[in-house]
Design a protein around this nucleic acid. Structure first.
Lengths: 236, 236
DNA sequence: TCGCAAAGATTGTCAGACAATCTGACAATC
DNA sequence: GATTGTCAGATTGTCTGACAATCTTTGCGA
């Protein structure tokens, strides 16, 4: 939820003596939420698993109110669902929500791509960097989780082209839901397709200024991803 | 926050004997959050007002943990901000955030308008109804608050044309921020311009199938609103 | 007047408790 | 045999009270 804390880097070469200082958010509830997210994204918690308050609180060494706040965060992010007097459980992705998430991605990312000519150079550089990192990870044979994460980072970068913090924040939210879906799908067979080619093509189109074709390409890419996800989801 | 509860109506004529059953959500924290939102939207709480936990809890007759959960909701919605060890206070709208909210609105509402031809008839009817309600309120000389609310309902209806619950939910979030801004601006002089003409024109364009012109019209409308808001915000 | 230490206020977190509600099993009734 | 009523256990929703950490303000001395 913290919408991209750092913003203004120190003036390039200056190199303030304080660089690796982030002082982990001391908020206990944030740390608990992070741990829960991690567990969800890594597939340690299966969809539908009830998150019992007392057990979890004790297991994590925090009090129940603190854990409840963390759970509320997870619920707000769509990673878990709460039913009155029945507690919170890990969200169970259904085809309908996958379709909706894809719709949202299409709207947000298309807006970013269309804004490529007017985006800041920094935002454009971020997209190039994300693509480079992804390709490097592919070449290095990274884990499927890292590939998924870097892949999604590219798409977040596209939304970043809008220059709108709120749109990026919204994109982060749906991407989190997507990571949940991916984690569940890949719980057993953990494979992440190499999609570097498609993204590279998209970036080439943008660099050459052919925005309309880029939008089409993005649409196809997202549609394909949506179909693939739903198909695999239906197998369970 | 409840993202459109009802979804599947009973099969048309079937009509289960239980129709008007909604049994208000009894959750205390929800009721507290509702009350706080109301107070913010009605301008009873000025921007920057610190929301002291003990005082508020006592004043509302709830315990501090319960109030804290409600505050967390407000913060998540962007209606309030939390600073570590300094507590929660009513968000203070700055020009930058107004600009960002306008950007988000433009993206979401444009997506809806572009989808007009493919939207469900129900979604289209909702837009017509919202516009009708707004015009009726104008004619009846309703309060500025009701006018604002009905006006924003039209724009929510536009986003509804996408058929995406998540996009609508996101739109609701930014609209809430906008209501906060409006409440603060109109705290003293409470005037809401009559904008029925512009919206009617937009709907006419949609009905006639001239989507591109409608998108342009929407862009102008939003841009004008953004400028007007920022101008008035700077006066304070 | 300015800087600094002590006091007060406020938040972050915890522990324990109780009522309301859900779940499931079993008995009672039609 | 199926529906309904009842009960025990488990879990959540909420409250009370408390304590340490931190922020803000007051007051004092240079």
């Amino acid at each position: 939820m913290p919408p991209a804390e750092h913003v203004s880097d120190p003036p390039a070469t200056a190199g303030s003596p304080f660089d690796g200082l982030s002082l982990e958010h001391s908020s206990t509830v944030e740390r608990v939420a992070d741990e829960l997210r991690r567990a969800v994204f890594e597939g340690e918690l299966e969809s539908g698993t009830p998150l019992r308050e007392v057990a979890l609180a004790e297991s994590l060494g925090v009090s129940r109110p603190t854990l409840r706040e963390a759970l509320a965060l997870l619920v707000a992010e769509g990673l878990a669902t709460r039913e009155p007097h029945r507690g919170v459980s890990v969200a169970i992705p259904d085809p309908e929500s996958v379709r909706d998430v894809s719709t949202v991605r299409a709207v947000l990312e298309t807006a970013g791509v269309r804004n490529w000519p007017h985006a800041t150079e920094e935002a454009r550089a971020a997209v190039r960097r994300a693509l480079g990192d992804y390709e490097a990870a592919v070449a290095a044979g990274a884990t499927y989780q890292e590939l998924n994460q870097r892949h999604l980072a590219i798409h977040l970068g596209l939304v970043g082209l809008t220059g709108s913090p709120r749109l990026v924040s919204m994109a982060e939210s749906v991407v989190a839901e997507l990571r949940l879906v991916l984690a569940q799908i890949d719980r057993v067979r953990r494979n992440a397709r190499d999609q570097a080619g498609s993204h590279h093509h998209l970036l080439d189109l943008l660099e050459s200024g052919d925005i309309d074709t880029a939008v089409d390409e993005l649409g196809h890419h997202l549609h394909g991803a949506e179909d693939a996800l739903i198909e695999r989801l239906d197998l369970d």
